[in-house]
């Protein structure tokens, strides 16, 4: 059996905040944790109204919460994920975490002695700053990872993995809702020669600059990705083959007219484009890729720097 004195010691050594209030929202008890974290002392605190002792409390919400415990006789809770802190307190990791205040989980427990009537409510405050800190770090890391796994490192546009994911989705959506959808694939002409003549860094620059130019021209719905090597692709939702052709031509002309300057040397380059559009016979998104690719090679065969549409 513990003596009342030992109970007292235990309550004050707990690594939890304990505040007991009565039904008039007056403080009847605070433990040592609250004294130190809120910089108040016990004798000045008891019999004080809760809302004047602690400033900036969400009063209406907190009153309703405490009331529910008095009336229903059952506990209530508050979770940091919905409300980071209720009581403004310092925490034990001010240097390593970004939170200004202790992040808290709260439990509101009904206290009664030998009767069903709730006499007081105990507010238990748990410091979860650490949990919050690591959870947020994890979320940030996951976001970065997701971005990295979808992005082409050289050009900063989408990579092939992301293209395939999105194209699968756009293909299914267009089929289901009977929307138009076109795919454009293009290749930098004589890219190997540029690499051989001006060096690989010049080749990298061409890819980056071309990606930049096209990003400026595309519309919000379009998805632009590096397919591999010097090959790129654009998903063009809600565009039929005529509209896609018009867009492809403007892109091709822009690249051809652009001054690519590397190391004070002007490099002229062009692209060969192939486009295909979704129709009732399109069975899979792969078949559309194949069709655009066939059209692209037709452009190459016919002398490069041109746009071809896939014909059955």
């Amino acid at each position: 059996m513990l003596s009342p004195k030992t109970y007292d010691v235990l309550l004050n050594r707990l690594n939890l905040g304990v505040i007991v209030v009565n039904s008039a929202f007056e403080v009847e008890f605070i433990n040592h944790f609250i004294e130190t974290q809120c910089q108040v002392n016990y004798s000045d605190s008891v019999q004080q109204p809760l809302f004047s002792l602690f400033s900036d409390l969400p009063e209406a919400w907190l009153k309703r919460k405490i009331q529910s415990v008095f009336v229903l006789g059952t506990p209530a809770f508050s979770n940091w994920e919905q409300r980071r802190h209720v009581f403004k307190m310092r925490h034990t990791r001010p240097v390593t975490t970004q939170s200004d205040y202790m992040v808290q989980n709260l439990s509101f427990l009904p206290l009664s002695q030998n009767s069903e009537v709730v006499q007081q409510v105990a507010i238990i405050i748990e410091d979860v700053t650490d949990t919050c800190f690591y959870q947020e770090r994890l979320q940030d890391t996951l976001k970065t990872l997701e971005h990295t796994s979808q992005t082409d490192a050289l050009t900063g546009i989408a990579n092939r993995r992301f293209f395939e994911e999105r194209f699968l989705y756009e293909f299914a959506r267009a089929k289901k809702q009977q929307l138009e959808l076109s795919l454009m694939m293009f290749d930098m002409d004589r890219f190997k020669s540029i690499n051989d003549f001006y060096g690989h860094q010049a080749g990298d620059y061409i890819l980056q600059e071309a990606a930049q130019l096209i990003t400026q021209q595309m519309s919000r719905l379009d998805v632009f990705a590096r397919y591999g090597g010097e090959e790129f692709c654009l998903i063009l939702p809600q565009k039929n083959i005529m509209q896609a052709h018009q867009f492809a031509e403007s892109v091709r002309q822009k690249i051809y007219a652009h001054d690519f300057v590397f190391d004070n040397r002007r490099i002229q380059t062009s692209i060969s484009v192939g486009i295909a559009q979704l129709d009732e016979d399109s069975e899979s998104f792969e078949s559309l890729v194949t069709q655009a690719d066939i059209a692209l090679y037709q452009s190459k065969r016919e002398g490069r720097n041109r746009t071809s549409c896939y014909k059955k």
Partner: peptide, 8 residues
């Protein structure tokens, strides 16, 4: 909040 009230 409503869930906790109903359940408890």
């Amino acid at each position: 909040d409503i869930s906790s009230i109903l359940t408890t």
